[in-house]
């Protein structure tokens, strides 16, 4: 039963990779990796129970954090072309249009 769930999540992750490869704009790719990461977190939680070792959830917590941090870094790279400057002043204005 849980194994069926794990197989379903695997399919969803495969679809995310298709979006990652096909994504026309860079933000589609960042979205694909972010969603891929969140689905991985769910997969870990589900697999922990399917394998009978529920104490694997520590790994799931780390996934959620790393996924968030790498999504912000990827987005900064595409948007501001630099990792160093503060994001708090993310500009909504329309200068610097780029892919």
């Amino acid at each position: 039963m849980l194994a069926g769930g794990v197989a379903g999540l695997l399919v969803a992750m495969g679809l995310m990779i298709v979006r990652l490869l096909r994504g026309p704009t860079a933000y589609d790719r960042v979205l694909a990796v972010n969603s891929f990461g969140t689905k991985t977190v769910l997969m870990i939680a589900l697999m922990g129970f399917a394998v009978g070792r529920p104490d694997f959830l520590d790994v799931a917590i780390v996934y959620a954090l790393i996924n968030f941090i790498s999504t912000i870094a990827l987005m900064k790279v595409f948007r501001l072309r630099s990792l160093a400057e503060p994001l708090a002043r993310l500009s909504i204005s329309r200068e610097a249009p780029d892919g």
Partner: peptide
């Protein structure tokens, strides 16, 4: 086999495995 984190022989997880 399961992960190399030793379980108590009588714990519910060990019995399920």
């Amino acid at each position: 086999g399961t992960a190399a984190i030793r379980l108590e022989a009588d714990s519910p997880a060990a019995e399920a495995l």
